[in-house]
Simulated assay, not measured.
Amino acid sequence: MDTRFLESFIAIVERGSIADAARHLGLTPAAVAQRIKALEDEIKQPLLVRAGRNVTPTAAGLGIIEKSRLLIRGVEDLKALATHNEFAGELKIGAISTALTGLLPFMLRKFFADYPKIDLHVTPGQSIKLYHDVVEAQLDGALIVEPPFAIPKTCGWKRLLSEPLVVLAPESCTETNPLKIIKENMFLRYDRTQWGGRVADTFLRENRIFPTQQLELDSLEAIALMVSQKVGVSLVPDWLPPWPEGLKIRKIPLPDTTLQRHIGLLWLHASPHATLIRQMEPLLLPRKSRNAPGASRP
């Protein structure tokens, strides 16, 4: 089976028309239609239903679309493994929200210039989910909070950034003692089911602080906005900008800075793009990091 036929089939399903797929592939609509006919003849099933300019997959087409995508990706991976001096194919990485805005944008221009044949796909998500996606080979790598356990030997890890905890308080708050602020105000808790939230929770427990809690959220940006609106105070990592615009808040550092949220790059050693991901490390390092990055784990 010619994989170009599958590429044409996937392009039509994703774009909804033969004309759009042809423009994407740089072919004529007639050439794309011929590929689909050849594919249908080989599979001996109609794969697409045409209704005017729109095209939708049949039941048989729906049945093979995901396997077709996996097959095409496998072919691209084989090309990447066989090509020693040139990176090509699809690279799938994940990123938590603060890494998506604070790290990725500043490296993409150089990345695309250095690796023009890489098709980059970025999946946003929470660290726990992205971690499992990498371990299970659903992603090639991910920018996540450092797990609270040892990285498995099947994966590599590079710490890129360490973020100290700070107390967020409304701009109108005049108190300067961060512990007193937490104790005496309604507390907006960083979700304890998240690895970053566990760091903040560890600080509270070690200092025997049991604040009056109103909300528990997994979005740092939402917490900052609520503090700005005087809903309460919070304890969060001092993440890389950008922060939401127009915030009326104060950031008060803690007396103990040993507890920090660490952000890093996780990758799967077995990924065909493992070498490329390791070469991404220096591009991802923040230009003005508050803390020196930690050592790599093998």
Rank of each mutant, 00 (worst) to 15 (best):
M1V: 11
R4Y: 00
S8L: 07
I10T: 06
I12H: 08
E14H: 13
S17F: 08
A19E: 13
R23I: 08
R23Y: 03
H24L: 11
L25Y: 01
P29V: 08
R35H: 05
I36N: 02
D41Q: 11
R50D: 00
A51V: 13
G52S: 03
R53A: 05
T56N: 10
A60N: 12
A60K: 09
G61H: 04
G61R: 08
R69Q: 07
I72K: 00
V75A: 04
E76D: 12
D77T: 03
L78W: 05
A80Q: 09
F87G: 02
I96L: 04
S97I: 10
A99S: 08
P105Q: 07
M107F: 01
F111I: 03
F112E: 14
A113M: 11
Y115P: 04
K117F: 12
D119V: 06
L120T: 08
V122M: 08
G125D: 02
Q126K: 01
I128N: 05
K129F: 04
A137N: 13
L143C: 04
I144T: 00
T154V: 13
K158E: 09
V167D: 04
S172H: 14
E175V: 10
N177H: 05
L179C: 09
K183H: 09
K183V: 14
E184G: 10
E184N: 15
L188H: 05
R189E: 10
D191A: 08
R192I: 02
W195C: 01
G197F: 00
A200S: 15
R208K: 11
F210P: 00
F210H: 09
E216R: 02
L217G: 02
S219K: 14
L220T: 11
L220A: 11
E221H: 10
A222V: 10
A224I: 01
V231R: 13
P242E: 07
P242I: 04
G246C: 03
P253S: 15
A270P: 07
S271P: 07
P272A: 07
P272I: 05
T275D: 14
I277F: 02
R278G: 02
E281R: 08
L284Y: 02
L284A: 00
R287N: 05
K288A: 05
K288I: 08
P293N: 07
G294M: 10
A295V: 14
S296G: 07
R297P: 01
P298M: 07
